[in-house]
Design a protein around this nucleic acid. Structure first.
Lengths: 206, 206
DNA sequence: TTGCTTACTGCACGAGCGTTCAGTTATGCT
DNA sequence: AGCATAACTGAACGCTCGTGCAGTAAGCAA
């Protein structure tokens, strides 16, 4: 019989997930044992198997739900394709930076632990990842077609921009010199320049 | 007594290193066992301890010599600081892309396996890494001071550019649509735009 | 041939791994 | 109060891990 939400079992399920995310982000999937995760949660190792069939599924579920959440969060605030490419790019970059800053651990894991996925699981995560990359690719293509972005190679620019944007999660630390919104603003400028948009960012003394 | 170079022991030492690099790049440090490395080399696990005091040192030596090689390779072809910032940046980017394409495994390891280093070893690798980032930071600062680069934040631009450039190692595959030199050329254009250089890349129909 | 050194094997050690499961306790419904 | 079920323990399974070490085979100088 299904339990009411808010029951102790459900809370533990969430605790397991979060302990796993924290530990894997810190030490890496292969270096973290089920016993370590259990200790963090405050249970014995065997109890974890009430919430996951095995260690591999634990990783897969973290990565899969991260990617799905990323995609559906974007769907929620994606602008229509009738909007100007510059504005669409700005929206995408702001979304990406904020999301990646607020969920650093998940993001870190989901591109560090790809090689610890079983082949089948890897294929599925790659599919979702490509879907997300295509969001940016489509915006850049649209801008190029409309002549407002000027790039030598759209595919390379897409990969370069994704790497640049995602990189924020490797150096951002809470309480640093810049807040999330400052950083997002900087990345928006940089992305527009990278895309070859005709947007002078600053008044430049010639 | 020291052995002559080219002896069988030295060959094995190199084979151990290369097997370790290949396997760690593929599966991750924690997921690779000494027995796997030994099998790849064609010896028993115990024999590895003739070439490394322990597993941790094996990782550290790979990362340290990679960083030192990266830095000294750059020193060999670094332009003087009297050269124009645009030309210095071009030189740096071309070097970086070529280097990262030709040594994908080492590069991949050296930013994926940082968290598997012991604290002392981590500090040392971070020091070398920062030295390399400072190379780019100095070029960008110089360009900003001379007014040929226009950036909102030099530090953020440095981190963004490094992430963008290093990202090439995650998607480049031998025999793809573009060769290393094509890719380097694209990254040079993108870097100049990112730095806000006044260099129109293409003739643009307005 | 003898003797020294290098390169390596083969086995062992204790520890920890992922996972299973019979048994125990806690919880909430009737 | 009684009972079903959920939540969890604690011990065990077979296995692999990093590492140490006595012993051995091969190469070479004298």
């Amino acid at each position: 019989m299904a339990r009411k939400s808010g029951s102790s079992g459900e809370k533990t399920a969430i605790a397991v997930r979060e302990a796993a995310i924290r530990l894997i982000a810190q030490h890496g999937f292969a270096a973290v044992s089920m016993r370590q995760i259990a200790r963090e949660v405050g249970v014995q190792a065997g109890a974890l198997y009430l919430y996951t069939p095995d260690k591999q599924s634990l990783l897969f579920d973290i990565l899969k739900s991260h990617m799905e959440d990323l995609l559906s969060s974007w769907q929620d605030e994606a602008p229509g394709s009738d909007m100007a490419p510059e504005a669409r790019l700005e929206r995408f970059v702001r979304f990406h930076i904020r999301y990646h800053i607020s969920r650093q651990d998940r993001v870190f894991i989901s591109y560090m632990e790809l090689r610890n996925l079983s082949p089948d699981n890897f294929v599925e995560i790659e599919r979702l990842r490509r879907l997300y990359e295509d969001v940016l690719g489509e915006i850049l293509s649209d801008g190029a077609a409309k002549g407002v972005f000027v790039m030598e190679d759209i595919r390379v620019t897409t990969m370069a921009m994704i790497a640049m944007l995602t990189g924020v999660s490797t150096w951002f630390r809470e309480g640093g010199r810049l807040g999330p919104d400052d950083i997002a603003a900087h990345y928006i400028s940089m992305s527009l320049r990278l895309a070859g948009a005709h947007v002078p960012m600053l008044a430049v003394a010639e």
